[in-house]
Amino acid sequence: MEVRTIKVFTTVDNINLHTQVVDMSMTYGQQFGPTYLDGADVTKIKPHNSHEGKTFYVLPNDDTLRVEAFEYYHTTDPSFLGRYMSALNHTKKWKYPQVNGLTSIKWADNNCYLATALLTLQQIELKFNPPALQDAYYRARAGEAANFCALILAYCNKTVGELGDVRETMSYLFQHANLDSCKRVLNVVCKTCGQQQTTLKGVEAVMYMGTLSYEQFKKGVQIPCTCGKQATKYLVQQESPFVMMSAPPAQYELKHGTFTCASEYTGNYQCGHYKHITSKETLYCIDGALLTKSSEYKGPITDVFYKENSYTTTIK
């Protein structure tokens, strides 16, 4: 009895394709271990004539594949690729409408935090270190965002349907971005203890939790000093293409032309909904596939993004 075979390709990165001759009487799992086709788990399936010449994702289970996976995804987590594939199996079914010149995501599976993050990423200057993220990001900007969303979920250790947080998501993504040249110098002034300067680099240099107003941050924000008295913390120097200011959701007025974009969060910790506000020729609110415009805006804002380049204080 002759062994019926077909020729397929296996890959971990969709760049390096490895030619395989597979036995049609055995499952993919018996031949390769966990195997995925377009995100779908085909591990328990036997090869079919229609699979001839198709590319299958496999887990990096030998040295060659491990090197290829690390170079593309910059992670050695053995569960990463499987999590990416199972997320992709959902995100490829989502709709990605162009809204006001940006790629958004039609609401499904509690994905409003991903839509808000995706919209924000198209408006701030950011370059990702893992080629996987950078490639998928370019495709997302062009309207094909399924891979990018699935990668975000995998890097953030999230599953489809789980509630997510924009600030946490951005923080994970910033860790995989090139923020080497970003720098922030802060000064804390206390009447009792004097003053202390701190220099922050990388992710810490672009994120701040405690106030939404970048102007206020430049002037000074009140913080408790270690001595128990009130101290003032203010920005001395900022070198970065953008800054992200966050605070627990509270009524906040966004003035046209003073910011790049913002995240609105309605609801409580267990259950809520994100919308995205962007400042173009007027203010726009993007909620999944829905767009509304207004000249002014007041609502429960939790993150505001500002364009920056270089700032030095005039406070002496």
Rank of each mutant, 00 (worst) to 15 (best):
V3S: 13
V3L: 12
I6F: 10
I6D: 04
I6R: 11
K7W: 10
K7Q: 11
V8E: 06
V8G: 06
T10V: 12
T10L: 13
T10S: 10
T11I: 10
T11L: 05
V12N: 11
D13A: 05
N14T: 15
N14P: 11
I15N: 14
I15C: 06
I15T: 11
N16W: 10
L17Q: 15
L17W: 00
H18I: 03
H18N: 12
T19R: 11
Q20E: 13
V22M: 06
V22Y: 06
M24R: 12
S25W: 01
M26C: 15
T27C: 13
T27D: 13
T27A: 13
Y28C: 06
Y28H: 06
Y28K: 09
G29Y: 08
Q30I: 08
Q30D: 13
Q31P: 08
P34G: 12
P34E: 15
T35K: 04
L37Y: 14
D38I: 09
D38P: 05
G39H: 10
A40F: 11
D41N: 12
V42D: 01
V42G: 00
T43D: 10
K44P: 11
K44A: 15
K44Q: 09
I45Q: 14
K46Y: 13
K46V: 14
K46D: 11
P47W: 08
P47T: 04
P47M: 03
P47V: 05
N49R: 13
S50G: 12
S50R: 12
H51R: 05
H51S: 05
E52G: 10
E52T: 10
E52N: 14
E52A: 12
G53M: 13
G53D: 11
G53T: 09
G53Y: 12
K54V: 11
T55S: 11
T55A: 09
F56T: 06
F56K: 02
Y57K: 03
Y57A: 08
V58A: 06
V58W: 09
L59P: 07
L59C: 14
P60D: 14
N61H: 12
N61W: 10
N61R: 12
D62R: 08
D62I: 02
D63G: 05
D63M: 09
D63T: 10
T64E: 14
L65C: 11
L65R: 09
L65W: 06
V67C: 15
V67L: 15
E68W: 00
A69G: 07
A69Q: 12
E71A: 11
Y73E: 04
H74V: 01
T75C: 12
T75W: 07
T75F: 11
T76D: 14
D77N: 10
D77Y: 02
P78A: 11
S79T: 14
S79I: 07
S79E: 00
S79K: 13
F80S: 02
F80C: 04
F80R: 05
L81R: 06
G82M: 15
G82L: 13
G82V: 14
G82A: 15
G82E: 13
G82Q: 15
S86M: 14
A87G: 12
L88Y: 14
L88A: 07
L88K: 05
L88D: 00
H90M: 11
H90C: 14
T91I: 12
K92R: 12
W94N: 06
W94F: 12
W94H: 00
W94R: 01
Y96K: 09
Q98C: 10
Q98T: 12
Q98G: 11
G101K: 07
T103I: 13
S104T: 14
I105G: 05
K106V: 15
A108W: 07
A108C: 14
D109I: 05
D109G: 07
N110Q: 02
N110F: 06
N111P: 09
N111W: 06
N111T: 05
N111Q: 03
C112S: 00
C112V: 06
Y113S: 09
L114I: 09
L118D: 00
T120D: 03
T120W: 10
L121E: 03
L121G: 02
Q122M: 06
Q123T: 05
Q123C: 02
E125P: 11
E125H: 11
F128D: 03
N129K: 15
N129I: 05
N129D: 08
P131E: 02
A132K: 11
L133C: 14
Q134E: 12
A136P: 02
Y137H: 07
R139E: 13
R139V: 05
A140W: 04
R141W: 03
A142V: 13
G143Y: 08
G143M: 05
G143S: 04
G143W: 02
G143E: 01
E144N: 09
A146Q: 04
A146K: 09
F148A: 07
F148W: 00
A150F: 05
L151R: 03
L153I: 06
Y155G: 03
Y155H: 06
C156A: 09
C156Y: 01
C156L: 04
C156V: 10
K158S: 00
T159V: 14
V160S: 05
G161Y: 02
G161I: 07
E162A: 05
E162C: 02
E162N: 00
E162T: 07
L163G: 03
D165K: 06
D165L: 04
V166A: 11
V166W: 00
R167G: 06
R167C: 01
E168S: 01
T169D: 06
T169N: 06
M170T: 05
S171E: 10
S171F: 15
Y172Q: 15
L173N: 04
F174T: 08
Q175S: 13
H176C: 03
N178W: 02
D180I: 09
D180Q: 13
C182T: 07
C182R: 04
R184P: 02
V185H: 01
V185K: 08
L186N: 03
N187S: 11
V189G: 07
V189T: 14
C190L: 04
C193R: 01
Q195K: 11
Q197F: 07
Q197K: 11
T198W: 12
T199M: 07
K201G: 05
K201C: 10
G202W: 08
G202Y: 03
V203K: 12
V203M: 07
E204G: 10
E204M: 07
E204S: 10
V206D: 01
Y208I: 03
Y208C: 03
M209F: 15
G210I: 10
G210T: 02
G210E: 01
L212H: 06
S213W: 06
S213V: 01
Y214W: 05
E215H: 09
Q216R: 07
F217W: 01
G220L: 04
V221M: 09
Q222N: 10
I223R: 01
I223F: 13
P224A: 14
P224L: 14
C227S: 02
K229H: 09
Q230V: 14
A231T: 07
A231W: 00
T232G: 02
Y234S: 06
Y234K: 05
Y234T: 08
V236M: 10
V236G: 01
V236I: 12
Q238W: 00
E239H: 10
P241M: 00
F242Y: 07
M244L: 07
M244T: 02
M245G: 09
A247H: 07
A247P: 10
P248F: 06
P248V: 04
P248K: 11
Q251G: 03
Y252N: 00
Y252E: 07
Y252L: 07
E253C: 03
E253M: 05
E253T: 15
K255W: 02
H256T: 09
H256R: 11
T258K: 08
T258C: 10
T260F: 01
C261L: 09
C261V: 04
A262D: 05
S263T: 10
E264I: 11
E264K: 02
E264M: 05
Y265W: 01
Y265D: 05
T266R: 06
T266P: 02
G267C: 05
N268H: 09
N268P: 08
Q270M: 13
G272M: 00
H273W: 08
H276D: 00
I277A: 11
T278N: 07
S279I: 01
S279R: 04
K280Y: 10
K280V: 07
T282H: 06
T282P: 02
T282Y: 10
L283H: 02
Y284F: 07
Y284I: 12
C285A: 06
I286D: 07
I286S: 00
D287C: 07
D287G: 01
G288P: 05
G288S: 02
G288T: 08
G288R: 03
A289D: 15
L291A: 14
T292Q: 08
T292Y: 07
K293C: 12
S294P: 09
S294G: 05
E296P: 07
Y297G: 00
G299C: 03
G299N: 07
P300L: 11
I301P: 02
I301Q: 01
V304R: 02
V304F: 02
V304I: 10
F305V: 11
Y306Q: 09
K307E: 12
K307D: 06
E308S: 07
N309M: 07
N309R: 13
Y311V: 00
Y311W: 07
T312V: 13
T313M: 15
I315H: 15
